[in-house]
Nucleic acid binder design. Structure first.
Length: 349
DNA sequence: AATACGGGGCA
DNA sequence: TGCCCAGTATT
């Protein structure tokens, strides 16, 4: 038996009894598929029952108002799904006279229905030969065939869809699609896959090369943190106040200036009214100038908004890592690029 | 081509 | 915490 035939046998013996598998009503399948987008079956199940009960057909859904739909959706997340459903129900009621479309090319045009959902509805309701590729299918294919191409790159998505299409059993697309997803959800799980009882593990590249935990590959979006760095330039022209940075943060052990970090860009007067500012300079701070406009500085994981505030007020208290140095001596201190840029024009560095 | 959009389960 | 879940729309 080949790969997919093995999985069909596994499926027939191990599948869950899920309510949307007992119908070919495109409307009911649509309900289930929208609810299950990025949502675990166990979490979506109670919502599915409530929606079917309240809106047994497209016409009743189309007659609902948005508040009502969103109330029923409450707690499920991704609320645009609910809003899009109402739009789609009304459009189907109008243009399809209440009969939910079953063809992929019609479905893909509807709000809230993308490639996956269109393929799912078309195959489950009318056995149209379209292969579904959801998170489960990505994982099963990446592992079994040992594909290291990222599943969330445009090229990767195309290639996995193409592979899924080639694998699709054209005689029974509905069964094939259910098999692939159920296998991924129940056995070839993201964590702790049950390879020991897997019917195809001897021919699975990931299993035989001990790479199940490495697959599928997913490009992680480097999440960029925003930080607002308010530096104070305390100088008489010949000396200035410096800070030696700690070893945990960016620019570890390098030198910058007295700093107040905020979680947003504060107006200058609000900044100077912070208790942090008062602790350093006392209640009366004389600002010479905001020496530079806010500078944007891009790091790999951080977006820094940096500004320099020049003051004549001497701090009433020095932090442990603060010290006065001469402008001459700046040449011997390791300054981050952003800090160097900030002060180079002031001291003709 | 990236990012926003949610809440929950799991290691 | 970080990852992932029967993805899609928007910028």
């Amino acid at each position: 038996m080949n790969f997919t035939d093995e999985l069909v046998q596994w499926y027939l013996q191990n599948k869950r009894d899920l309510p949307w598998r007992n119908t070919t009503d495109a409307y009911i399948i649509w309900l289930s598929e929208i609810i299950l987008q990025q949502t675990r079956v166990e979490q979506g199940l109670p919502y599915f029952y409530r929606f079917v009960e309240k809106y047994p057909d497209v016409s009743s859904f189309a007659a609902a108002n948005e508040d009502e739909v969103l109330k029923l959706w409450q707690g499920l997340g991704y609320y645009s799904r609910g809003r899009n459903m109402l739009k789609t129900a009304r459009l189907v009621e109008e243009q399809y006279h209440g009969k939910f479309p079953e063809k992929y090319d019609d479905l893909i045009k509807l709000k809230g229905i993308g490639e996956y959902t269109a393929a799912a509805i078309a195959s489950f309701s009318a056995n149209e030969a379209k292969a579904v590729v959801d998170g489960n299918v990505y994982r099963v294919l990446a592992r079994f065939f040992g594909i290291y191409e990222p599943i969330n790159s445009p090229a990767g998505k195309r290639n996995f869809q193409e592979l899924a299409n080639n694998l699709l059993n054209k005689k029974n697309p509905a069964l094939h699609n259910q098999v692939m997803m159920e296998f991924g959800a129940m056995l070839c799980k993201p964590k702790n896959p049950a390879c020991g009882i897997c019917p195809v593990h001897t021919s699975c590249v990931a299993f035989t090369t001990n790479a199940t935990t490495a697959l599928p590959v997913k490009l992680k979006t480097v999440k960029v943190r925003e930080r607002f760095l308010n530096y104070f330039l305390v100088t008489d022209g010949d000396t200035l106040l410096m800070n030696k940075r700690g070893d945990k943060d960016i620019w570890a052990n390098m030198y910058d200036l007295p700093l107040i970090e905020t979680s947003s860009l504060l107006p200058l007067n609000e900044l100077l009214n912070l208790s942090a500012a008062h602790e350093i300079f006392g209640p009366e701070i004389k600002i010479t100038s905001q020496a530079a406009p806010v500078q944007k500085h891009i790091l790999t994981h951080q977006r820094l908004y940096i500004r320099l505030i020049k003051t004549e007020t001497k701090p009433i208290k020095l932090e442990v890592n603060w010290f006065y140095t001469t402008v001459e001596n700046l040449h011997s201190l390791a300054l981050p690029k952003a800090i160097f840029i900030l002060i180079k024009n002031i001291f003709n560095l």
